[in-house]
Structures are given as C-alpha cells and as structure tokens.
Design a protein around this nucleic acid. Structure first.
Lengths: 263, 263
DNA sequence: CCAAAAGTGTTATCCGTACACCCATGC
DNA sequence: GCATGGGTGTACGGATAACACTTTTGG
C-alpha cells in the first residue's frame, strides 16, 4: 500500500517524507547495473518524469538497520525485480560540494509552470533541505542476466531503459563519472572475480562468454585460445550439448560451478 | 588553543562536543598507516589511555565542508604530522550492527572506579549517543616514510606506536579485519599503482625496494631479475652512487620521477 | 689481490598466441 | 559429401626466471 499515490498529487509531493524515513543522513548509494544483449553492453538508467531530460543512476539510501550491501541489494531489487543480484562496491564519491542542489533547482525552474501551487515553495520544505544536502555516495556495480530483469519505474520516473554503453545519455551530477569508474573497475576485476557469468543465463556456451569479453574489452579473441583460457579457470561445469538445428557441431553448454563462490 | 584541555578533566569529558562538531553523521574514516623499517612492514596504531588495552585504528570523521579524501588527509596529518601523504580509499565497512557500543561499554565498565562522578552517567550524554550510533566507515590505507613521521597521540591515547605486521594487537570492533583488507589491497595494487616508493625516503637503492617487496610478499626475489623489473617500470631516475664505506661496488641511488603521477 | 655486492648479459623455461587439424551436425 | 562451426593438439615467440659473468669498492 505504501506505493499507492493519489493521482492528483504532483511528483514533487511524492518526495515528501524522505527526511522522515529512517535513513542514514547524507549517505547515498548509486548503482551501475550492467546487462548484456546482442553484442552490446548495456546499463539500466531511469529518466525522471519531469521536463528537461533528467537521467539519473538508480539510487537510494541506507536504512538504519540495514547493511550497506543489503541496501544496494534492495535498491537493485526495486529496479530490476530480482533478488540476490551480483554486485560489487567499487568506490566512494565524497567531494564536499557533491549535492543535488543545482540539478534540483534546474528541474524546478524548467517545470515551474506545471507545479502545483503548494510545490512552488518546495525550497522551504524539509524534504528539499534533506535531499539537497551534501551526500557521500557509495558506488556499486551490478551484473545481471538482462532477460531476468523486469525494469521497474519508480514513482518519479518517466522511463527506465537499457542504454548501450556507447550511447549513455548525459546524467545529473557526477553520475556519468560514476558509470565510467564502474566500467573501469569491471574491466579490471573481470578475470579475478570471475563475474562475467552473471551477465548470462544459467546455461551458456563458451562462444557466449567470448562475445561478452569482446564487447566489454572492445577487441577480438582467438576462439581456440579463448576457450582454453576460460576453461582453465576451472569454474565451469560442462552440461549437455546445445542443438540449434544449424548444420554444424553443437557446442556444449556450461554452468558456473556452484562450488565456486561468485563473490 | 582548541587542543588545550584542563588537567583535571577526565578523559571521557574530552569526548564532549563531538556531536556538536560540524561532522557528517554516522560516517567515519579508518586509516591503516603503513610504514617500513628494517625488513618489517609496520602499522601505526594508537592505544587508548584507559585500562583494558584498547587498541584502535587512527580514525576520525568528515566535516561538512570537507572532501572525504581531505578528511583522511587531515586525520593522517593529525597522527603523523606530515601533509600530503599517499593514500588510497579501499573499502566501505557498512554492516548494520557496526557500532562502538559494546567497546565503549566495556571500556566504561573496566574504568568505572577511576571515572569522575559526572562521567558515571556517560550513557545519558549526547556524546555517548552520538559516538555509539551505527557508523559507516570508509577505509583508507596510507604509505609513509617512517622516518618522516612524528607520531602524535590524540588526547585519548596512552601511546601511538608502530607495530610489526605480524604482531598487530587485537583492536576494537572490526579494526583487525579492516587492517587485513588494507594489506590485501596493498599487495594487489602495488605493481599497478607503483606506490611502494612512498614507504621509502626520497633517495633509495634498488636493494631497498627489493627488501620492501620481500617483506610485503613474504618471499624472496632473484636480485638481478628484480632490478630489471623495477627499472622497466620506467618511473625511477638514476642519481649519484651511494658510498657506504663498505668494500664493494656502490649502488646507484634512485628517485621516483616527478613526471610520473603517483596516484 | 681478494671479498662482497652491484650491474649486465646469456641461457633456459614457461606461458600466451597462432594455427593446423579433427569432429559433429544437418542439408 | 560438404559447408559450418566446435573442440583439441602443436609449434612458435616473447616474457620471465635462473644463472654466469663482469665491475666496483675498500681493506
């Protein structure tokens, strides 16, 4: 019931009570959610329902009785509708002048005419003050099987969509910088954390994995050597063959071994 | 003048006003300060002046108008008396039940008889409530030239000393875990960040570097190959020779090239 | 001249890359 | 059988490791 919003309430009204939630003050979580489809690395990015093209990373706050990792899981679940997502904390963004005041003011200016009378003094509200404080943001990146995700708009979103990594829209504040850092970290960690498999369905072929590597690193790999490299990690379990009906040898399907910890 | 404390004030009195400082709430910084001397990797750790052997990592909080990195620099400077220390943020520790209540209560119990009357109700004070909140801690590790450091006790410290990495005392809360994670990160990053030189004086020999590597990784390196590896990083500038009076060839001194960014 | 330690060069080994070859599949 | 793509084995080459050799220093 708590997500039920009366139709005549304007969007800014919906922010109300942020300050009354049991959140840790001045700490936020920003998530870079990576997915993969058709030779494209993608990021799940909502767009706010206000005029002015405001894209933001999926974000949220940390409840008092919640681990920071849990909070990230919750935020991810809210946006993707899947639980137990693979995620990695990668950096804290802690500039002193890191706040949303500029972005919120611009948003209000652009949308001024459409605001309810009661929202035109938004600056006076407790929520405005809460929201435009300086925030220390903890960056997480997540890897998901794009087919399992059912993107969920928040009540503030016009849309939430997958954007190709080379077609990321300009986002508010430092969110583009956060995304860039997430991508760098993903590239750096990929062989060590053995986490690419989280971008794939449970069963996949080595060719699938190679496609993802080639996409992420924007280079090609020699098929035969790539196969060996991946199998030598010793984290895959060979399953049945995958028959596609094509006139060629059927590749084996593999599954990430349960016995290997993903994190 | 702000560090001036009246002699008759008990230590717990000195915590007062923590809550009135302009700090970000529920966010702390914990620093693992690494130094090197005589084939030993060392960590600078204060011990509180209370009975009961309370060791803690050098910690502090973030001022409202201060970058998180700056706050870490400030905390480091307070304890080492050097500015511009090399440091890396390495992880956020954000468990929901991460607070100092247990440790503070134990400290109070053990020291109860020696407390001033006015401090015996410490639990009622604003500061107690502030300090024992759940804190999200941002972990930093620092590399310093141990000879440049003049360790500074805080007003709460009985001592602040360099402990060998294999003789680290049991610390409060999760501080030993934080240290362990810092060490792991240091080992992982060392060749990529080329930061090991921060543990040495400005001028050093390749043998000095090798000693540090052997200490950090607890293994030996073949001298001739190690020399090549380090020089092939192309970040060192060869200076004059270092004559020690010993009856052997004098090694060259090197300096980290200014042109190479350390971070 | 010798011992000790630094610096350089040479050989051996390992590992990543390239590629040849064989296998399975459906027409 | 043949075209296509998957799986395995082998040969090459660059990088790293091991080690031999030379140089410097002061007694």
């Amino acid at each position: 019931m708590k997500n039920e919003i009366k139709q005549d309430e304007s969007a800014s009204t919906r922010w109300l009570n942020l300050s009354q939630q049991n959140y840790i003050n001045q700490v936020s979580i920003d998530c870079v959610i990576f997915g993969y489809q058709e030779r494209q690395l993608k990021v799940l990015i909502p767009k706010l329902l206000y005029k002015g093209d405001f894209w933001v990373l999926p974000s949220g706050f940390v409840l008092q009785d919640e681990d920071v990792d849990q909070a990230a899981q919750r935020i991810l679940c809210e946006r993707t509708s899947i639980k137990g997502i693979y995620l990695e904390q990668f950096q804290v963004f802690g500039r002193a002048n890191r706040n949303s005041k500029e972005f919120i003011n611009r948003l209000k200016d652009i949308n001024y005419e459409t605001l309810k009378e009661s929202d035109k003094n938004f600056e006076q509200s407790i929520d405005y003050k809460w929201l435009t404080q300086r925030f220390i943001s903890i960056g997480y990146y997540a890897l998901v099987d794009i087919n399992k995700v059912v993107p969920q708009k928040s009540i503030l979103d016009e849309s939430i969509e997958w954007y190709n990594i080379d077609e990321i829209p300009p986002m508010v504040m430092d969110h583009n910088e956060i995304l860039e850092k997430a991508l760098q970290t993903l590239r750096k960690d990929i062989d060590e954390k053995l986490n690419v498999f989280n971008l794939l369905p449970e069963k996949f072929t080595i060719a699938d994995v190679q496609e993802i590597y080639e996409t992420i690193f924007e280079r090609t790999y020699v098929r035969t050597n790539f196969q060996k490299k991946i199998l030598e990690f010793n984290v895959l379990e060979r399953l049945e063959k995958k028959f596609t009906g094509a006139a060629n040898k059927a590749p084996y399907l593999y599954r990430f071994k349960d016995s290997v910890t993903k994190k």
